[in-house]
Design a binder for these strands. Structure first.
Length: 220
DNA sequence: CACCAGGCAAGTA
DNA sequence: TACTTGCATGGT
């Protein structure tokens, strides 16, 4: 464990006290979670929710057999349904790639990926075009319950602002800060990431300095 | 109107 | 390897 243990725990405690448990990921099934992870890339969640709503209304997320059914749809139909989430042509293609992995290697069951273990599952996910570190880790944590910390743009912004990581820090470096300083607990990582997103949405939207921010005056 | 949102890969030098 | 650009919608 590193030397920022107490600080990161303090930040977590403040966020949890302020906002309460977030109960993430907002999805009914592991497949819906994975689809949402793809669609939310550089997109507002409200738009993603519309896209997911379209998929549900079309019956394409109803288990069992949802992955196979989704995978079987023509590209232009998928594009049409996910259109509100933006980048719809690229995302339809990428979603297809993720579904191919799920269907052909795991019998259409997202959870079955967990049997590979953390390292191998992450590798398999990252091999899919359109799945980068954040998307892979989101699926590992929120669908497979693996102890991985998810780093997103908010996490980076907050850490930089409080000078806990350098501006040029890479994904792995930021992830390591959390994972080297906290117990490898999926429930903790789950809640922590969700709380960071909540903080960013609620508080740090267009505010030069975080007045009244729960993270004011954090120190080592 | 401009700007941004829970990224990622392809193109360029 | 390091930097830049394309992708696209809907809300503020």
């Amino acid at each position: 464990m590193g030397r920022h243990q107490a600080l990161l725990q303090d930040v977590y405690d403040r966020l949890l006290t302020r906002f309460g448990p977030q109960r993430w990921w907002p999805a009914d099934t592991p497949l819906e979670m994975a689809v949402g992870a793809m669609l939310t890339q550089n997109a507002a969640w409200g738009n993603v929710a519309q896209a997911i709503g379209n998929l549900k209304a079309a019956g394409l997320l109803d288990e069992p057999g949802a992955a196979e059914r989704l995978f079987a749809q023509p590209a232009d139909y998928l594009e049409h349904l996910i259109r509100p989430s933006g980048y719809f042509r690229v995302k339809a293609r990428r979603l297809k790639g993720l579904l191919e992995l799920i269907v052909t290697r795991f019998g259409g069951e997202v959870e079955a990926m967990g049997e590979l273990g953390l390292i191998a599952a992450r590798e398999a996910l990252l091999a899919v075009k359109g799945v980068g570190p954040e998307t892979a880790d989101s699926i590992l944590l929120y669908a497979l319950d693996k102890p991985v910390f998810v780093v997103d743009a908010y996490t980076r912004r907050i850490l930089c602002r409080h000078e806990l990581v350098p501006e040029e820090a890479g994904y792995d470096e930021i992830q390591a800060l959390f994972m080297d300083n906290l117990a490898a607990d999926p429930a903790l990582f789950n809640e922590y990431h969700a709380l960071i997103v909540r903080l960013a949405k609620e508080h740090c939207r267009r505010r030069p300095a975080c007045g009244g921010c729960p993270l004011e005056n954090i120190s080592e």
